[in-house]
Amino acid sequence: MNILIQTIGFGIVSASIIAVGAMGFTIQFGLTNVLNLSFGGVMTVSAFIIYLTEQQAGINVWLGLLLAGVGAAALTVFLGKTVFKVYARRGTHLFEMVMVTLGLSLVIEYAVDAISRDQVYSISFDQGASYHIGAVTLSESQIIIVGIGIVVFLALEGLLHLTRLGKALRAMAVDPGLARSCGIPTNRIVNATWLISGFLCGVAGVIYVINSLSVSYTTGMLFLPSVIAAAILGGVGSPRGAILAALLLGLVTQLVAAAGLSAYSSMAAFGVLVIVLLARPSGVLSAAARKVELTL
């Protein structure tokens, strides 16, 4: 019984890591309709930023986190404004866009590979004291990770529902044309989305490597499946859905691992996604069924 509760505790930790990435992914996907596979590449970049700042230069971890977030946000905005915009202007289809983003991911990944000399770098990070919460024992850094997940969720919900920017974001996600004709500066809103999404992507990359303790050019691609699965599972554009889906995936992964089948834990998470695709495909229906266009 204690093992079960402990496993649930670990599940919540991995859920928080997935959730931060999934919320960043889903908010951008919901608004621009770009299924952005280069998210993985950007996460790798942010993981290397924390490695270089916190591990090599000895900068405070919170400052490193901020730098990684800002770096990832800047990179994402840059890609959104240059690469994606160019393709959107050329009339690239939705399904071609997903191919473009994968190409971009490959380019970023191997650029990082070239710069990082094809090595895996280990991260030594003081996990802090252990705390006992009921039957669950978590390290300080794990508790902070859960805290970051909760703070990001609350901040995003607050942003979406309490501010004018959030209102504009939601309006644009529903109908970009109508939003534009109501005087919403759609261009600026899209920029804001890239910025938020990129920042969350950076934070997710950092807490992922702080938990997994190593970084290489494949880091982002290892983490990306969970992020996309949570975003699709939770329903596009919904931070609430993303956090629930992340909880489900995190718990399933940890429970399967605790049952001694750790090789199958990510497969089990994928199984959940498949069941959802089969049983409840609303929101993932074909573009013909729901009119969807690129908004850039």
Binding site: V98, M99, P225, A263, S266, M267, P281, S286, A287, A289
Partner: peptide, 26 residues
């Protein structure tokens, strides 16, 4: 199935990444 093609692509990519991990670790 009749889902958006970009979802299809993403599901296939996830599958590729996960099956690789599976064969590596088992």
């Amino acid at each position: 199935r009749r889902i958006r093609r970009d979802y299809q692509a993403a599901v296939m990519l996830i599958l590729s990444l996960i099956l690789l991990q599976l064969v590596q670790s088992d």
